[in-house]
Amino acid sequence: MPQRSDQEKVHGRTSKKTDFHTIRSLVIIFILFMMIVSAFVFLRMQVANVSTDEQKYRYHYVFVGDTGDSRMLEIINDAAGEYGRKSGVYVEALDTGDESDSSYADRIDMAVAMGVNGIIVGAQEEKDIADAVERASVAEIPVVTVLSDCPDSLRKTFIEPDVYDVGRTYARSIIAVAGARKLNIAVLVESDDNDRFMAGLSDTLQNEGNHLDINIITEDITDMPNFRLMDLVAEMLTDEEMDIDMLLCPTEYTTQIVYQSVMDHDLAGSSQIIGYGINESLLRAVSNGEISALVYIDADQTGMECVDTLNGYIDSGVTRDHITVESIMITSGNIGRYLDE
């Protein structure tokens, strides 16, 4: 009997060893199987990613604008396209830049001929646009304008930055970048609608920047030639009596001229500059510390409003004549996002 018992023990050990080996093999086989399946799934996903975007769209809108030259329009177009993609709308840009011989009106007419569902016209004040918009309207294609309006036309909505809010954003930029409590700030103004801008600026400085002692000087640069503006900027920044600590430029064009003047006269760092717009050179200037901050229309909101306005009009037949969007501030703290874009 003891011999039998020993044999049973040996057999039991062998059996356990065999079971362990089997379980181990099964685990490895299962892991290998999962690895193979995962590799296939991964590859299938990779293949699917390169396939044509199969997303379906309800509407086809075109964005008529100089997206090749205007970074702002390009970003608004991209924002509209991105938002449209999420809401079932395909937004296609019909560029009117240097590479295209077409005018805005031609592009609008072309969009009408394409049979699109809506047209977004960005920043253009050509006189003949109104006729093209009228032809679109006859073809029952709604048109919205962005940044620049086409008055006396049949466009459905004009989407623009809220000037008062722009003033507020400038004020907040001043508060954010202020290097001293007592500041002399010069504002270059060139349009008639300065009251609301200044009101937004003053109100916010009084409310949120009451810890600062700010003296605001305004300089009207309406219809001022470029060379004159550049000289003026140089004079202001070197005038010891004025002692300008900060220079505000309310338009992208003005900002570009001012920045050029500062660089030409080697005045970078003598005063802080807060500008408007987001073209590549201005963004680089912010990145390099030559411009303290940029104020910019909220492109995401603008693109979204364009799509939503057209969708609303197509679906309900009504829309607002005028829509304002907020502004945002770009400083060295958040410049990375816009440079990447």
Partner: peptide, 16 residues
Amino acid sequence: GELTEQEMREKAIVNL
């Protein structure tokens, strides 16, 4: 009906 991006473009070409 609802179309893909490519189909939208092709539809535009058809209309033009």
